[in-house]
């Protein structure tokens, strides 16, 4: 009975984190993180610098030991040989030795894994053919990141960690990485990526986890997070009292900023219709998508209201 149950759990969840905390001296990088990541999902971990994203990934890889709590990867200890054979990773600040070529680097990494992808395939998928035989040190920053990305997938892993995979990439390379991530996800792999960009999380993930100062402040399907973060922000000069605006359709919050009124709404057209019909003199109208910071503000705010 018990064995059956573990099997079920191991099959459903690739990563299980229960009460995971990590402190470095007086600094708390992760605070009581509970997070289960389902098989065959793409999870984006969003957060500002220092939110704990990289620490969480390092814990999952066994590079850092959690100070407290339980963490398992495929039901195994993070960093065990068994889990490492099924994991591919692109770290944020891991540069490769200068004097080998991308082809040599990837071939070496392939030898570590039980059933790696064919080298030629990976060179092709990651679009490395143009510089596969150049020395690593002669590559541009974006090319280097693409080689690092290739190392993450060469092992044909079931679970892939990508720590800020598109930082430093130009638009074209970013699109390539997105495309490969989608393809890998369609093939049934589990992907965990961190990013600064809400847009990237939105484009790739089916689940978003928001970390703020080491706390998980949101963990929900991507669509829900988007709604929670508010669809848009309306900025204008108007005489309507905030109290009345708050009652308008789809409005999440209202505040004054100098002579401007800022309104967060889940659906800007409905709110705008109401606003414009109430105030004919409304002026200096701007509608924009909230930035990640504004989304965070709102998430933290709504979190506090709930508790």
């Amino acid at each position: 009975m018990k064995a059956n149950k573990t099997e079920l759990v191991a099959n459903d969840f690739v990563i299980r984190a229960k009460g995971v905390s990590k402190t470095f001296g007086v600094h708390t990088a992760l605070r009581d993180v509970n997070l289960d990541i389902q098989k065959n999902s793409v999870t984006a971990i969003l957060g500002t610098n220092g939110a704990g994203k990289t620490t969480f990934i390092h814990c999952c890889l066994g590079l850092t030991k959690p100070s407290r709590g339980n963490l398992s990867i495929f039901g195994k200890k993070p960093g065990s040989m068994e889990s490492r054979r099924r994991v591919g990773v692109m770290l944020q600040d891991a540069d490769l030795p200068d004097l080998l070529t991308p082809r040599e680097h990837i071939a070496l990494f392939a030898s570590y894994y039980p059933s790696p992808l064919p080298l030629a395939n990976v060179l092709d998928i990651c679009n490395l053919e143009g510089f596969a035989t150049k020395k690593y040190k002669a590559l541009s920053g974006g090319q280097k990141r693409r080689v690092q990305f290739a190392l993450a997938i060469i092992g044909n892993p079931d679970l892939i960690f990508l720590d800020e995979p598109t930082t430093g990439l130009d638009t074209e390379a970013r699109r390539m990485v997105w495309e490969v991530i989608r393809r890998l996800a369609n093939e049934g792999r589990t992907i965990v990526l961190t990013t600064h960009y809400l847009e990237e999380a939105d484009a790739l993930s089916d689940r978003i986890v928001v970390l703020d100062a080491g706390n998980v402040i949101a963990n929900a399907p991507t669509a829900e997070i988007q709604a929670l973060a508010g669809g848009a922000m309306i900025k204008c000069v108007t005489d309507i009292p905030p109290k009345d605006i708050g009652k308008m359709p789809k409005v999440v919050s209202v505040r004054h900023n100098g002579r401007f009124t800022e309104i967060n709404t889940q659906d800007s057209p409905s709110t705008l219709r109401a606003l414009l019909s109430e105030d004919a003199n409304l002026s200096e109208l701007i509608v924009k998508k909230p930035s990640l910071e504004e989304a965070f503000d709102q998430l933290t705010h709504s979190q506090k209201k709930k508790s």
């Binding site: 890889l61 490492r84 891991a94 490769l96 570590y112």
Partner: peptide, 17 residues
């Protein structure tokens, strides 16, 4: 040098003994 640039960290995360 290889530790400084984070290479050994990446190798530790990989299944290379």
């Amino acid at each position: 040098n290889e530790r400084d640039r984070g290479w050994l960290k990446l190798k530790r995360a990989s299944p290379s003994p």
